[in-house]
Design a protein around this nucleic acid. Sequence first.
DNA 1: CCGTTTTCTATTGTCGACAATTGCGATTGG
DNA 2: CCAATCGCAATTGTCGACAATAGAAAACGG
Lengths: 242, 242
Amino acid sequence: MLRSTRQGSQDNRAALASKPIKTGPRVYAEIRRMAMDYRFKPNERINEVELAARLNVSRSPIREALQRLVTEGLITFQTNRGFFCRGFDVEEVVNLSDVRIVLEERSVRLAIQRATDEDLAALVDWWAKTMARADAFSSAELTARDEEFHIRIARLSGNSELARMLEGINTRIHFVRKIEVEKHRRLSTTYTEHADIARAMVARDADRAARLMHDHISISVADAMSTVREGLARIYVDADQI
Amino acid sequence: MLRSTRQGSQDNRAALASKPIKTGPRVYAEIRRMAMDYRFKPNERINEVELAARLNVSRSPIREALQRLVTEGLITFQTNRGFFCRGFDVEEVVNLSDVRIVLEERSVRLAIQRATDEDLAALVDWWAKTMARADAFSSAELTARDEEFHIRIARLSGNSELARMLEGINTRIHFVRKIEVEKHRRLSTTYTEHADIARAMVARDADRAARLMHDHISISVADAMSTVREGLARIYVDADQI
DNA sequence: CCGTTTTCTATTGTCGACAATTGCGATTGG
DNA sequence: CCAATCGCAATTGTCGACAATAGAAAACGG
C-alpha cells in the first residue's frame, strides 16, 4: 500500500479532460500568465507547494517552470529562500521602454529593407480590418492586437533574435500596456499611429517609419508613473476578487 | 536498507571539499559554461542521466539548470524529446550582432548622459592598464577583458535591463568572440578602438562614441562566415581531446 | 529485397520522500 | 521592556522510483 504512487495524478489528468495538454507546458503557460498579470503580488514570495496544489501537480514541473520564468525576468529567485514575483516599479517600466524603442526602430528599418511588398500590404490590410472592428473588442483583445502589430513587424525584420527579444519585453510590459490601452480607449490615437507606421513602411520611408515608431512607443516618465500607480491599485484591489 | 537514501550524494559533497558551492548554482554554472564553449556539439542531444552522472548529482538540478539555459538561448528543448545544444550558424551570429549594435550604441549614449566624470575617467584608466599588460594575457583572459569593457559601459548606462540583455548576448556570442580575439591577436586594433571609445565618452561626444562603437562591433557577413567555419573546426576537432 | 508493423529499449516526465535550511515565535537574561 | 538565543514549524533542495513516451531494432508480409 505504499506503492500506489502516482495514482492521484492519474486521476487529476483524467479529470482534466483525458490529456489535453502535457503537464509541463501547461503548468509553464499558466504560471507565466499569472506572472504577466500580476496575479502574484509584487515581491511576494511564491509558495511552491501551494502553487503545486492549486495546479494539481507535483513541485517538479512547478520549479522547472519557475526557473524558466526567472530568466525571462518575470520571476525572481534567491537560493534557499525561493521564488518571488518580480517587483512593479516605474524604473523597470522606463528601462524596458527605453530598450524597446531602439529595438523597435531597428525592427521597422529592417522590415522595410527586407519585407516584400505583399507582406507590407498585408500588414496594412490587417490593421485596417482590426481598426474597423475596434469597438467590438474587449480591452484584452485590443491589447493583444496592439502586441501583434509590433510582433508582426519584428518578424518581417527577418531577424529572429530581434523578434525574440521584443517578445520577451512584450510579456514583461504586458500589464502596463493593458492599462494604457484602457486609459486611452476613447482617444484612440494608437490605431491611427499604427496605420501611419504601416503606410510609411509601404512607402519604404525608413526614417519616417522609425521616427513614427519612436514617438509611438515613447512615454514620459510622468505617464509611466501614473500608469504604475493605476496598476498598483488594480493589483491590490481587483486581485482579491478574482 | 531501503532507506540509505541520499547517502551517495552526501559522500559526493564531502569529497568535493566539504561544501564549497551549493549544488544547484554550481550545476547551473558548470552547464552554462559547457554550453558557452560548445562542449556539447551543435544540435547534439543532451542526455540528462549521463550529465547527472558526470556532475555527481541527480537529474533534478540538471533539468532545472537546463530549463533556465533554454530561455537564455544556450539550449534548445523539445517536449518528450529532451534538451539539445543550440545550433552554431552564421545567421544566428549575424542576427545577434545586429541586435548588439543598437543596444551598445544606446548604451554608450546613455552612459555619456548619466555617468560621472570619475566613472568615465576610471574606465579610461582601467583600459589603459589593461592594454599595458595585454601581452601577458591569455586569449581567454583577453576575451574576458573585452567583454568586461562593454559590460562596464552598459552598467554606466544606468539601465539595468539594457545591461542584462547585453550580458545575455555576450554569453551567446562568447565562443565566436574568443575566436575573433585569437584571430586578431597580432593586429590589436581592438585595444585602440576601446581606448578611442572611452576617450570620446570622456569628451561627452555622444555621436562620435556611438559611431565608434558601431564600427567597432560591426562585422561583415564574410567575417562571420570565416569565424563560424573556424569555430566548427574547433568544436569537432579540439573538443575530442579535452 | 523493401516497406510496414510490432516489440523492445533507452530516455524523459512526474511523483512522493526526506534532509537541509530559513525564519518566526517563544523563552530567557539583562 | 528589550535584546539575544534557542528551538520549532514551514519551506526549499535533492534524491531515487516508476510511468509514459519516442526511437531503434526486430519481425513480418508482400
